[in-house]
């Protein structure tokens, strides 16, 4: 079938990565918007959480879709990682990378795996947390802890690196590479990850440093 042929071609696989990546990026945007309420006050945040959970159907449908997208992204990512590893193992006795600053592109699978680990921990801590304690309290308690907070911060740094290459790579895969916009794109590849890093990693820092004491 043409669709399967299309998706299983080398470019099709990249398009799966890019499309799912884009959707995940959109998810991050909504998530970061919700999280921003933390910086306002616990009441606002709790209100947001309660409102969200008062529409269980929406939550279930969205979570399922999100899960599927995420699985596709991870599955295809790992598959590509495996395929590429097979090609690159024991190729040259000397390997020199000509392109500078390849850290984020070379570590894509690893930063991806860190994010996956984070996600599992995160979901078990919050999504499936005891419904008796209000979520706003759990957030403060958990993220105020040193090790837990540090784990979050490290994960968000990994996310930033992942986005640093992923965002540009996604646009390249969609065919967006034009001298007129490349400057803007290359700025965005820094701004976007930094934005998410500040917004997300700011939350544990907010609690760890005591800034969120009046939360």
């Amino acid at each position: 079938m043409w669709f399967v042929r299309f998706l299983s071609s080398s470019i099709g696989k990249k398009l799966i990565m890019a499309t799912t990546g884009l959707l995940l990026l959109l998810f991050l945007c909504t998530h970061v918007a919700g999280n921003a309420t933390i910086y306002m006050s616990s009441e606002v945040f709790q209100g947001y959480a309660d409102e969200l959970h008062s529409h269980p159907l929406i939550v279930i449908v969205f979570s399922t879709i999100f899960l599927l997208i995420f699985l596709a992204h991870i599955g295809m990512g790992l598959f590509l990682f495996y395929q590429n590893w097979q090609v690159s193992k024991s190729r040259y006795s000397v390997t020199t990378r000509v392109v500078k600053n390849t850290f984020s592109s070379e570590t894509m699978p690893y930063t991806g795996l860190i994010i996956l680990t984070f996600l599992i921990v995160h979901i078990f801590s919050f999504t499936f947390s005891s419904s008796e304690v209000p979520i706003s309290v759990t957030v403060k308690e958990m993220l105020g802890g040193f090790f837990y907070g540090l784990f979050y911060i490290v994960s968000f740094i990994a996310l930033a690196f992942h986005l640093n290459h992923g965002f540009w790579s996604m646009l390249q895969t969609f065919g967006m590479n034009h001298p007129r916009y490349n400057d803007a794109i290359s700025k965005l590849t820094l701004i976007l990850p930094l934005f998410f890093l500040i917004m997300f990693a700011g939350i544990p820092l907010y609690f760890m440093t005591g800034l969120g004491a009046s939360y």
Partner: peptide
């Protein structure tokens, strides 16, 4: 041939 991962080595 392998899959492109936008490593840019080719261009370099």
């Amino acid at each position: 041939f392998g899959n492109c991962t936008n490593a840019k080595e080719c261009e370099a």
